[in-house]
C-alpha cells in the first residue's frame, strides 16, 4: 500500500475488501510432525480394530472436506502387529528400513483399512517413530523449513512383546531415552491405553509418558483423535482425564 501522504494513496480507490482479499499471506514456515503409532496386534481383532478404522476414516474426512487441519501439520502412520512394524502412506505399507518418509500433509492423510494380527513389537515401533521424525527433520532443514516439537501418539491395548509374543523387557532403556528427548524438547510422547490393557501394560505407558498417559475404559478412538488435535495446537496440552499418581 502506498505511504499515507503519497499521491498513489489518493488514487488507490480499490474497495477495502478487494485490498483485504488480495493481501499476500505468508506461506507456513514451520511444521508440526505427528506420528500415530497404532497397535494392530492380534488382541485388537474384532470390535477394537473396526472402531479404530472407522475413527481414522472419519477423522481423515474431517480434514479433507473443507474442515482442514492447518497446512503446517504432517502425519505419519506406523503400526505394530499385523505384518510386524510397518510404515504407511495411504493404503501402501512399506518396510520400516526404507528411506521413504511416511509423513504426509494433514489434508492428504488417507488412512488404510487396518487388520489385526501378530504380536506387539511396541519398542521397535516407538524407535521407528523417533527415527522417521529425525529423518523428516533433516529433509525440512535442507528446505530451510522450521518445525515445532514433534508429537508421538502411541495407542495400545497391551504390553510390549518380543517376536515370539513373550513380554519384552527391553523397553526400560527406551523409556529413559524418551525422557531425555522430552527434557531436550525434541519430542512429546502421549501414551494411550485401551481395553484389555492390564496393570503391567499401564505401568509401561506410565514409564514412557509419566504426565501424558491415559487409559480409556472403552474403544473411544474418536475422542483420542480429538485430544490429538488439541495437542497439535497446544504444546502444553494435558490429556483430559489424566490423573496424576499420588506420591
Amino acid at each position: 500500500m502506498a505511504p499515507r501522504n503519497s499521491p498513489d494513496r489518493a488514487t488507490d480507490r480499490r474497495q477495502p475488501r478487494d485490498v483485504i482479499g488480495n493481501i499476500p499471506i505468508p506461506r507456513p514456515s514451520h511444521r508440526v510432525l505427528v506420528v500415530l503409532c497404532m497397535d494392530t496386534s492380534y488382541s485388537m481383532r474384532g470390535e477394537a480394530i473396526d472402531k479404530l478404522n472407522d475413527a481414522l476414516a472419519s477423522w481423515a474426512r474431517s480434514m479433507h472436506a473443507g474442515e482442514k487441519m492447518a497446512a503446517t501439520t504432517e502425519f505419519a502412520l506406523i503400526t505394530f502387529g499385523a505384518g510386524g512394524v510397518r510404515k504407511w502412506r495411504g493404503d501402501e505399507s512399506f518396510d520400516p528400513r526404507s528411506d521413504r518418509t511416511p509423513f504426509v500433509p494433514a489434508h492428504s492423510f488417507r488412512p488404510p483399512k487396518l487388520s489385526a494380527d501378530g504380536v506387539t513389537p511396541l519398542v521397535e515401533a516407538i524407535r521407528l517413530s523417533i527415527s522417521v521424525i529425525e529423518a523428516r527433520k533433516r529433509q525440512l532443514a535442507q528446505e530451510k523449513v522450521t518445525w515445532k516439537r514433534p508429537l508421538v501418539w502411541l495407542v495400545t491395548d497391551g504390553r510390549p512383546t518380543d517376536d515370539e509374543g513373550k513380554p519384552a523387557s527391553d523397553w526400560h532403556p527406551l523409556a529413559g531415552e524418551i525422557r531425555g528427548l522430552e527434557a531436550a524438547q525434541k519430542l512429546a510422547l502421549f501414551a494411550i491405553g485401551i481395553p484389555p490393557i492390564d496393570d503391567l501394560g499401564q505401568e509401561t505407558l506410565r514409564a514412557f509418558a509419566p504426565e501424558r498417559n491415559m487409559v480409556y475404559g472403552r474403544f473411544d478412538f474418536s475422542d483420542i483423535l480429538l485430544q490429538l488435535d488439541r495437542s497439535v495446537e497446544d504444546p502444553n496440552y494435558k490429556l483430559r482425564g489424566y490423573q496424576p499418581r499420588q506420591a
Binding site: R4, R9, V19, I23, P24
Partner: peptide, 21 residues
C-alpha cells in the same frame, strides 16, 4: 515481508474504513 500489517494500518487510516474488514 508480506505487507499484512502495513496494509491493515493503511486501511484504518481511511475514515470510512469498515472495521468488519
Amino acid at each position: 515481508t508480506e505487507p499484512v500489517i502495513d496494509t491493515v494500518l493503511g486501511l484504518l487510516d481511511d475514515d470510512h474504513f469498515d472495521a468488519s474488514g
